[in-house]
Write a protein that binds this DNA or RNA. Structure first.
Lengths: 345, 345
DNA sequence: CTGTTAGCGCTTTCAT
DNA sequence: ATGAAAGCGCTAACAG
């Protein structure tokens, strides 16, 4: 009663003068037990401070945990700092509450990415987008536990959900770049540990994150079709999906010669960072600088950002239900370009 | 290898021609095992698809889970929607990552609040503020697992962390109400399931949530000292800590006779809702309407809101470390009134 | 409606 | 450096 869940079914059984099984029934299927017995058992349990079956023993016996694991990249605070991750998790949470499952947040550490997975007490994994060939993916697939991934990579053995980033990339690039002289892309990271860099017309396949790669490919494709030499398009690759880093990067570029006059940003977060930089410098948006975002977050709506809208919340829900086998697969998520006040067209 | 974590230590042991104990050592204390043996064991494990000890069995044997449970009110999406909860969780997460612990999000359902607690596979509980006498509190205390609560109630057996809401309430009420003719409080909920209501000088002890109660008590105390009849002070009690609900409530009051000219709001979230309502109506802030918030969130800073700043992140961290026994207790969290542009003084 | 048996997979303890 | 024994607390399967 005082420290730890020390009281066992056996002790309660002894006190109540019944067998352990009856105690088990009393807690799990009370209707199976005679009213008088039930009362006696519960009284003994209360007296001894027994609050219910030990979860570890029950899980061992039943072979299930009643918990779903969400695999996030370190640091775990990302889950709470990042808008997109936040919405995804909210969707996962909504499905888990319905299914009476707990959520375990798993942080992939650098020193041993695999152990977090293999030692997780969960019935399924949901993985937040990872770079291709990341060891975590392999660990999840080999765990033998049902699993799904948002944003790829798309590998056998993992349920996959992701919007058509390439197609949307073309559309949003057009919205951003139409009529521009010095267009640029503000890119999400290419890999897990990478400094921010300024590239010129990089090969999209250099990006290890599928989401980044596909969005970049879409941008390139539109440029090629529109006759804009891809080599001349600058791509500022950030180290993180961070408002502050984006603001700083764009501020530097706006202060330098040949400042950009169009920015296709791969997330609302960094688009808003760019917007902040422009605003601080008095650069009129969209007249002198058009900016687009991605995701359709609350702050983007308030800021009047032209952006690609998708529901990470719904994708989180759908992936969760599919991984649990409640629905059969996940449809490709819908998206739309929402034109607001940060683009010229 | 295909479905579930079916391979056991025993099978690997047989294949590697060693005892189960050696396999256990190979995974838990590899340095204890001869190099050649280790290699053989790992080869067998890889061959059979054994990825490591079954977490349930290990937890049962060791009596610990390596996980900390965070108890949140239903719906669980609150954790991701609410700014304050979000910061608290980020702080918890930072401490858990350091300690190599997982985080389990537990949603308290209405139908059986206790079972979620008793069946949680965790080594400690962190509870997000609950109403006094809520059954969840009791369940947590009786679980025998170390536990802490943010925002109260302050009960024996639970570590407690909360800023001095009453003292700050006085200070912020002064900032909001100074020189006002028709001051009002925009209040967080009084209880878990309650419609929104408009009260006149309510007794603070009617509020079941300690945070609400103490902030209201602070407001009342300042009014009494300043000679403002508390009975004349309107208190709009919201059903949820929601921007939208706050905006709607304040919009209605601004459109009615005797609109408020000062609002002390108990969170940034609802203060910003009030600000939106004022802004939509063209009510000049702070000239015709002063507004204060609480928490010192990002959006509040951007909006220039006068507010009480505290770090829920640090409080989350501190409470986690204390509950784990790594630090000894939690100091009372610091706070400051930050005057910005939404108040007259 | 209640009880008996058996064993989930692992690791602590104590040898060797 | 490796192994044997024992049991963590529970519940599925099967009586009665």
């Amino acid at each position: 009663m005082t420290s730890g869940n020390r009281v066992t079914i056996a002790q309660v059984a002894r006190d109540a003068q019944v067998s352990p099984m009856t105690v088990s029934y009393a807690f799990n299927q009370p209707e199976r037990v005679a009213a008088a017995t039930l009362e006696r058992v519960l009284a003994s349990a209360a007296k001894l401070g027994y609050t219910g079956p030990n979860p570890a023993a029950r899980s061992l016996r039943q072979g299930r945990f009643g918990t779903i694991g969400v695999v996030l990249t370190e640091p775990l605070t990302y889950a709470f700092d990042d808008l997109a991750a936040n919405r995804f998790l909210a969707g996962v949470a909504s499905a888990c509450v319905e299914q009476r499952l707990g959520i375990s947040l798993l942080s992939v550490a650098d020193d041993n990415p695999v152990q977090v997975i293999t030692s997780a007490a969960v019935d399924a994994f949901l993985v937040w987008t990872q770079p291709d060939d990341d060891p975590v993916i392999d660990a999840v697939v080999h765990s033998g536990v049902p699993a799904g991934i948002l944003g790829g990579p798309h590998v056998p053995g993992l349920l996959y959900v992701s919007m058509d980033d390439r197609a949307a990339g073309k559309v949003v690039t057009e919205a951003a770049f139409a009529g521009a002289q010095r267009p640029m892309v503000l890119s999400l990271p290419f890999g897990r540990h990478q400094e921010s860099v300024l590239l010129h017309g990089p090969d999209p396949t250099d990006a290890g994150y599928p989401v980044t790669r596909h969005r970049l490919a879409g941008a390139r494709e539109w440029c090629l079709e529109a006759g804009i030499p891809w080599d001349l398009v600058r791509v500022a690759v950030l180290a993180r999906n961070s408002h502050a880093e984006a603001a700083q990067t764009i501020a530097a570029l706006l202060d330098a010669p040949e400042p950009p006059d169009a920015i296709m940003a791969m997330s609302d977060e960094i688009a808003l960072g760019a917007l902040t930089a422009a605003w601080e410098r008095g650069v009129p948006v969209p007249e002198a600088l058009s900016i687009t975002g991605w995701d359709g977050s609350e702050p983007a709506t308030r800021a009047g950002l032209t952006t690609i809208e998708q529901s990470l919340y719904e994708q989180g829900r759908a992936l969760t239900l599919a991984v649990l086998g409640i629905t059969d697969g996940v449809p490709e998520p819908p998206w739309t370009l929402v034109r607001r006040t940060t683009t010229r067209t």
